[in-house]
Design a protein around this nucleic acid. Structure first.
Lengths: 141, 141
DNA sequence: TACATTGTTGCAAAAACTTGCAATAAGGAG
DNA sequence: CTCCTTATTGCAAGTTTTTGCAACAATGTA
């Protein structure tokens, strides 16, 4: 669990608090490694902290996302799933089967610069999920 | 309304049908010009077709998206909104105020090619929504 | 250690979204 | 024009996600 409490200073610096609930959620995501839906986070985090409630999970995930500790990314169905914030990367999801791979952020860096200069928007650093057809599913077409 | 019935052949060619419900939904999105949430689509489309139900709106929007007649794009909160399929473009949404601008697809073409060659995924043609901070909100920081 | 401040949580109820299934109706065949 | 097939809808009930508010608890101060 201590792995996650390292985030506490980040929150305190902005006037927020590290709580047992947030810690449990971070811990779950940290050890999961990949995306989880809010329901899955709830199920797992409650094993560590039985008093945890579902609304709190939703609110915490949104809060943690806003503070950059977790990253939201849309699934095929349009619902958000969350993963612990790691190195910058993006995703390509297969439209057919849902298979998912990561894309290094370096591939997008030029684009992000281009977007910032051409649009006037700053801090464009969002995770992006692209949808395509994976090699496996291409064979079946 | 006839504007939307032009889509019928596209659906029939794949064994699907054009119905009054889909027509009404397409009509609403066509004349709206920008994104609408499912609830907004429902409210407006029901004026044209009072028998329309909410589940049908959700199912139709998903169906129309899969068939390329409308485009889904995530809002700030992560919820999907839909717009009529037009020329290819993407969006940048302000994280603070929600202000939204369009990005020409040409800016992303190189990246898409790069992604396809480096990942093996094909037909990466999804709409993408980036999040950043708009010029107005930058002033307040 | 006790107090005050204020960010957070839990609860309960509402709203948004999804699903299964029987009834309906679009489009093709005769 | 009528019938047939089967995609699609409406209904009703479920699940998921959000919201308001009172109770709680984490930090700073004395």
């Amino acid at each position: 669990m201590s792995c996650a409490s390292a985030y506490a200073p980040q929150l305190r610096a902005r006037g927020f608090r590290m709580t047992a609930q947030r810690l449990a959620i971070l811990h779950v995501l940290h050890h999961e490694g990949s995306h989880l839906s809010p329901a899955e986070v709830y199920k797992k985090a409650r094993l560590e902290l039985p008093s945890l409630t579902e609304p709190t999970v939703y609110r915490s995930l949104e809060f943690l996302a806003q503070n950059g500790l977790v990253h939201p990314s849309p699934s095929r169905g349009g619902h958000l799933r969350y993963e612990i914030a790691r190195h910058d990367h993006h995703h390509i999801v297969c439209r057919r089967c849902g298979a998912e791979i990561e894309v290094e952020h370096t591939l997008l860096e030029n684009l992000y610069r281009l977007l910032e200069t051409s649009s006037g928007y700053r801090s464009i650093n969002s995770h992006v999920t692209f949808f395509g057809v994976c090699p496996e599913c291409q064979k079946e077409e």
